[in-house]
Every structure is written in C-alpha cells, then in structure tokens.
Amino acid sequence: MFQDAGEILMLLWRTLRSLPRTWRQRRKVFEQLFEIGNASLLMACVLALFIGGVLALQTGPVLAERGLGGFVGQVVGLSLCRELAPVMMAILIAGRIGSAMAAEIGSMTVYQEVDALRTMNINPVHYLVLPRLVAICVALPVLVVVAILVGWLGGALVAFLNYQVAISFEGFFGSLRDGVDLLDILNGLSKSAAFALVIGTVSCHQGLATIGGPRGIGRSVTKAVVNSIVLILILDYFLTRMLMQLD
C-alpha cells in the first residue's frame, strides 16, 4: 500500500521531469486525445445532461415551495461547476480511460513488450506514460467544461418542464449568471486537472506493475479503477478545503 504510493509518486515525478519530451511524442499524445474524446465525449454529455436534470429536479421544488424558485439556476450552476462535473467526469474517465490504460500497458508488460522497449533503450516512461498523462490532463478539463455546459442545459430543461418549478430559460440562466462567475469554473477545472494526474499516474503505474499473466491484467485494471476513484474522492475533499481558503 505505502510502497505503491511511493512508486506512484516516483512515476509521477519521472513523468513530470520528462515533460520537455512531449513535443517529440506529440503524435502519440494526439492519438490518445482522439481515443479519449472518441470513447467518452458522448457518454460525458449524456451523463452531464442527467446530472444537471436531477439536480434541478431535487432542488427545484424545494426552493420553489419556499418562493425561492429564482435561485434554482444558481444552485444547479454552482454545484455543477464546483463539484459534480469535475468529480463525475473524473469517475467516468477513471472507469473508461484509466481502465483502458491499465489494460493496455498491463498487457504490454505481461507480454514482454515493455522489456523489449527497454532493450531498445526506449524509456517506457517517455514512450508509454508521458503521452497518456499529458493527453488525459488536457482532455479531462475540456470534458469538464463540456459537462458543465451540458449539465446547465439539462438543469434548465428540467426547471422549465417540471410543473412544480416551471422556470423559464431566461430566469434559469439569469440566476445562474448572477451566482456563478469565472472563478467558480476555474475552481472546478483546477480540481479536474489534479484528478487527471491521479487517474493517469495510478493507471499507468498499475499497468507497469502487472504480474502474473493474463489474469494479472484483469487484477490491474480493477485496482487501477478502484484506487483512482478512492483517491479522487479523498483528494476532492482536501482540494475543496484548500480552494475555499483561497477564495
């Protein structure tokens, strides 16, 4: 457990130190970006639409009952961009992309492809980890922005259609504009960048640490996803505390 943590930090450090090589690996970064977008954009939109919707559904009637219906936009808008979009997207990406990274690198480890890279003096950190980490750190914040926008739309739709709330689009987004400023969005984005580092590093580390043949790959994938999600949720609390102090 602690050994794992040490190894993960070590891998993160070595990857960050090799950042200047990103340009050389740009083709692989683009391939990874494309794969991430391809695999998760649609799912992210659907997820965000429903999260926004359910937020409006839960808070709308309660607020409207007390004559505070005008605040629905603000509540939905804030909770999405500060908390739900970053965390939900991180969990989605951990499940969708982290698992794929662990599986791919894990099978390369098991089938000696990583060894073969080493014998050719190709550093697996440069060749495998760096492009994946860079790609996920770019892709996750972008996905979060998309999710925030789509989530707002979902919230607005529900707020408008639900008869207990029945707030017009103008009303919803007016309240949202009053309550949410750019800093709130940046707050969520900075969290998501940290989550991306967690997912990328944990999954790549788990892949490289795979032992024991094909069954080991399955174990690595499960561990990568579970560890990423647990770390994300713990980190989320502390990052939120920290960012609150900064405000």
Binding site: E104, Y111, Q112, E113, D115, A116, M120, N121, I122, Y127
Partner: peptide
Amino acid sequence: AMVFQSGALLSSLTVAENVGLYLSEH
C-alpha cells in the same frame, strides 16, 4: 539487442513500425 522467446513485438504497431522502432524513436 535481444530477440525474445515470444518475439515481444509491440502489438499496437505494424511490423514495419516495430522493426524500425529503434531508429524512429531515437
């Protein structure tokens, strides 16, 4: 150089990319 028992070609690359990997990567 080492020729592995199982070959250990990178399964995500074509044969040509595998064979040329050392030259292209460096």
